[in-house]
């Protein structure tokens, strides 16, 4: 289920596009560092896998069925950078070739289903595996990571709407309702993700990115019969050192988004002024599509939005151009022959 055109104002759509572009650019650099010239075929195949897995319906209860979002799963199996790239490409392909998800909503969709699920999923996963070591830890961490990634995505949707929409919403009430619904959905996601990771772990543990530290250390045998054990297998390249950069980049982009959104909303304090609307919103979120109910107010009549939209378009084109140029230059500089 992807957000189509019309849920968000042009300004929010465009700002989200900028944030998504920045996030994807960071991941392109990260993935290239890890995978070198294997990036394109590996991330492409992981993307095809995610697309296929999203079509794998599993029955929940009473005749309804659900399917995976796959963000946390992709991050744990293939690493956070490759995970984001895979999801972003899945969304891009769905928007361009299947008309699924609006083109203007592509940024929002990449943030919600790619960046947020992977960042939250991977963060939770690392945290839990540090506390609970071993294979059991990896499985438990996968469950927690996938479970939490779903309500986190829903919360960011609410937040985005609160920032971008001109409709009055009571952030706390709506957020609570959204979290409740999506934790339930998250349990299914967590279960399937954990079982899938466990299944791969039992056959090819070396392919689970998140379990690299479980690899057995190498043994060196000396001529005199003694054997020495080397240190642990090398740490995955996604060190903590890059996280601040990632978060920093996102922060700057969000700030930018906020500024553009301010232009879009001529009455920022109107948020509190229409109190009776909150009742409707509170009720509406009990529905499964609760998140989307809020979005209907994403438009305001009048010129400022249009003007802001055009300002936003210009901004995006400039920023996206700079990012694309930078990524290309770096890509050229870092590509080398591999044996």
């Amino acid at each position: 289920m992807h957000v189509p055109d019309g849920f968000f104002t042009a300004a929010v759509s465009v700002s989200a596009g900028v944030v998504a572009a920045a996030g994807v650019a960071v991941c392109l650099r990260g993935a290239r560092r890890e995978l070198d010239d294997r990036t394109a075929p590996m991330a492409g195949l992981v993307a095809a896998f995610v697309f296929a897995v999203q079509m794998l319906n599993f029955p929940v209860a009473g005749g309804t069925s659900g399917h995976l979002l796959g963000g946390a799963l992709a991050a744990i199996l293939a690493g956070p950078f490759t995970g984001v790239l895979a999801i972003a490409v899945v969304l891009l392909v769905q928007a361009l070739f299947f008309a699924d998800g609006g083109l203007t909503a592509l940024g929002v969709n990449i943030i919600l289903m790619g960046l947020v699920t992977v960042l939250v999923g991977w963060g939770v996963f690392r945290l839990v595996t540090r506390v609970v070591p071993g294979r059991g830890g990896v499985t438990a961490a996968s469950f927690a990571a996938a479970l939490l990634s779903v309500p986190a995505s829903a919360l960011v949707f609410t937040l985005l709407f609160w920032i971008g929409g001109t409709a009055p919403i009571d952030l706390a009430t709506v957020a609570a309702a959204m979290t409740g619904v999506h934790v339930l959905i998250g349990v299914g996601e967590g279960l399937i993700t954990a079982l899938t990771v466990a299944a791969v772990l039992s056959v090819r543990p070396d392919l689970v990115y998140g379990a690299r530290e479980l690899a057995a250390p190498l043994v060196l045998r000396g001529a005199d019969g003694t054997s020495t054990v080397t240190g642990r297998a090398p740490e995955p390249a996604a060190g903590a050192g890059r996280l601040p950069f990632l978060l920093g980049g996102l922060g700057v982009s969000l700030l930018l988004a906020g500024i553009v959104s301010f232009f879009a909303s001529p009455h920022p304090d109107g948020l509190e002024s229409v109190a009776e609307e909150q009742g409707f919103l509170g009720q509406a979120t009990d529905h499964v599509f609760g998140g989307f109910a809020l979005a209907d107010y994403g438009e305001v009549g009048g010129i400022p939005v249009g003007v802001a939209g055009i300002v936003g378009v210009a901004l995006t084109l400039i920023v996206a151009g700079v990012i694309a140029y930078a990524a290309r230059v770096r890509g050229r500089a870092s590509s080398g022959e591999r044996v």
Binding site: R38, P41, V46, L77, L191, L195, V200
Partner: peptide
């Protein structure tokens, strides 16, 4: 026949096998 969530392990094993095949194919394509 997948009927309810108790059959999830079977689906998950398929998904796991699919990932391994995808990953290995990626390596061969490379």
């Amino acid at each position: 026949q997948a009927r309810d969530l108790r059959h999830a392990p079977v689906i998950a094993r398929s998904a796991g096998a699919l990932f391994i095949r995808s990953y290995e194919r990626g390596e061969r394509v490379h």
